[in-house]
Computed example of a mutant assay.
Amino acid sequence: MANAELEDAVTEYSRIRPKLMRVAYRMLGSVFDAEDVVQEAFIRWMKADRSDVREPEAYLHRTVTRLCLDHLKSARYQRESYVGTWLPEPLVNEDDQEDVTLPLMLALERLSPLERAAFLLHDVFGVAFEEVAATIERDPAACRQLAARARTHVREARPRFKIDKQRGLQIAEAFFVASRSGDMQRLGDILRIDVSFHADGGGKRPAVTDAILGFDAVMEALKYLATLIVENPSTLIRIGLINGLPGFITREADGELQTTALEIEDGGIAAIYVMRNPDKLKHLH
């Protein structure tokens, strides 16, 4: 490949790479796996016969999606053997994450790989069903059915109440202060009656293995955690968006990072998602 052609290929890939990362991350829920897939797509792109590629973006989207589908099939055993609650690796302060928030990504986990691909490509990224069909190697009618089934499953994960970003960050800050100081009255004021608590330690750090459901149970858990935090205080690093949700990053007493994301409905916290697995937090360092 001539130098000029090589430079053009790299430039074209660099332009498209952010979109490819968004597709791969939303398919896989892992920053590291997404980077591996996108890197493999780059290698294939550089080896491709450029005269056979009419639409570079479509070619790269197709390559990344197929690589993701292969990865999902190979990773299914790993997911089934995961210790405790599985949450996606956190992305911080990425405004365009609002199209696929953390609850929606958890809903995507319950879909088949093909349903996930059809839904993300068409409903989230606006790819025509004809291109979706070429990408996942199914006919357009089948892709419409896949997307429709996926849409039904994820409908409940869509936010029912759009919250102002600034207001959301204020609630996140209030939750941080109250939970660290043990102000149970303040916590009770900002939690919904149907609140849930989810934590991912991946078997690497202490975390509840199952979701805690309901106001009383969550309040009891937060009260217990507050007593631990008093003895082993954490440090706030920053408040911001985590997977499209208001939240914050802390450095805990053991020196490890932790993210807390809050799903907010009608002015109250409906769900708390805590990431403690150090393997899923490496990219934040």
Rank of each mutant, 00 (worst) to 15 (best):
A9N: 07
E57W: 13
E94H: 10
M46L: 15
F129K: 05
D52P: 02
T152P: 05
V177C: 08
R17P: 08
R79F: 08
D216H: 10
G240E: 12
E35Q: 12
R116L: 03
A148C: 04
A2V: 12
I212Q: 12
L236T: 08
I16S: 04
D36A: 10
R205E: 02
F175V: 02
G203L: 13
R79I: 04
L225V: 10
I264P: 03
L146C: 07
E130C: 02
H61G: 09
L228C: 12
A150E: 05
P18I: 03
H122S: 09
A261Y: 01
R110K: 15
G267M: 09
A128P: 00
H122N: 15
R66W: 08
R62Q: 11
T101L: 01
G201T: 06
G203C: 14
M46Q: 13
F215C: 05
V64S: 04
A48M: 08
T101V: 13
G201N: 10
T250H: 03
C68L: 07
N232A: 13
R66H: 13
G201H: 07
A199D: 09
G240Q: 11
C68G: 13
R186N: 04
F125H: 09
M219Y: 07
V37H: 04
S14G: 13
L262E: 09
G29D: 02
M275Y: 05
I163D: 10
D33N: 05
E80C: 08
G214A: 07
R62F: 02
Q39E: 14
R116D: 02
V208E: 11
V10E: 06
A118N: 04
A134S: 15
E57Y: 10
L236V: 10
N3Y: 14
Y77V: 11
A34I: 01
G244Q: 03
E130K: 12
N93L: 15
L146F: 06
R158F: 15
P206A: 11
P278E: 05
E131G: 00
N93A: 13
D200E: 02
R167Q: 13
I136L: 03
M275K: 14
L284Y: 07
F119E: 00
T63L: 14
A207D: 09
V132H: 03
G29A: 06
G203S: 07
E130Q: 14
E109N: 14
S74F: 12
T135G: 00
E256I: 00
P233C: 13
A58G: 04
Y224C: 12
D49N: 15
L91A: 12
C143P: 06
D99N: 14
R238G: 07
M184L: 15
R151K: 14
T101S: 01
K73T: 13
I190D: 11
G268W: 07
L102F: 01
D183T: 01
E115Y: 06
L245P: 00
